[in-house]
Simulated scan of single mutants.
Amino acid sequence: MTLNVLKNRQLMTKEINDLIVSHEKVAHVQLENRLDHALLVLIKSGYTAVPVLDRDYRVKGQISKTEILDSILGLEQLEMERLHDITVETAMNKNIPRLRTDATFQKALTTSINHPFICIVDDDDAFVGILTRRSILALVHRYLQ
């Protein structure tokens, strides 16, 4: 077996723990927050989407600027006054990928193709942090050098 094959196999079976951005450093919102709060979090953080957590810090989905704008889109204009009337739970995307902390790099790489970040949860489904596409690509780049 060549050295490159061994390196590739080592990379693909590597666990993702070292790549996770800890939950303490991740902007997020709660289910019961209003869209005006979620929009403020997104604007202040500079992110286009953030995780949505319940009161027990379990991942329930994600909210993005696009989902917020879709929620206040009227027939002819944006109805900005509705931002305070709609909860994050109503507007969020519930269909998002989640990985466990012991997931392999190969699984993370495959999952990240269609998602800028992946929520990482523990065995009790509690939010641990996120895995960004950027960190995945940076590791691939280091291996290719």
Rank of each mutant, 00 (worst) to 15 (best):
L19W: 08
I16K: 03
R142G: 08
D124E: 14
D123W: 10
L73I: 09
T66F: 06
I118N: 08
L109K: 12
N8G: 03
T110S: 06
I63G: 03
I86M: 00
L99W: 00
V29I: 08
L109W: 05
D18F: 13
H141G: 04
N4L: 09
N17Q: 15
S22L: 00
L78N: 09
D56G: 11
T48M: 08
P97R: 06
D70N: 14
A38T: 01
T66V: 12
A49E: 07
N114H: 14
Q106R: 11
R133Y: 09
Q77D: 04
K65P: 02
Q10S: 08
T110W: 02
L139I: 13
Y143G: 06
N4G: 02
L39Y: 01
K94I: 02
K107N: 12
I120G: 09
T110G: 01
V5D: 13
V5P: 02
V5E: 15
I63N: 00
A91T: 04
D122E: 06
A138T: 05
K25I: 09
L19S: 11
N17R: 13
D56R: 12
A103G: 05
I16A: 09
R142H: 15
M12D: 02
I86C: 03
K60A: 05
L73G: 01
S22V: 10
D85Q: 15
D70G: 00
D36H: 08
L75T: 11
E15M: 10
C119N: 14
R82G: 08
V29F: 04
D102Q: 07
Q145F: 11
Q62Y: 11
H28G: 01
V26P: 02
K65E: 11
F127I: 13
H141C: 07
I96H: 10
P51M: 05
E32M: 04
Q77I: 01
D122Q: 01
G46V: 01
D102N: 15
R98T: 13
H141D: 09
V121F: 06
R34P: 02
I118Q: 02
P51D: 09
K94S: 00
I72G: 11
T48P: 07
I113P: 03
M80S: 11
E67H: 12
P116A: 08
T87V: 01
F127Q: 07
T90W: 04
M12A: 00
N114S: 10
R58N: 03
L75W: 06
I63R: 04
L19K: 07
G129N: 07
R133H: 14
R100C: 04
T90S: 09
H28M: 07
R9H: 08
I20F: 00
K14T: 09
V26D: 04
T90K: 10
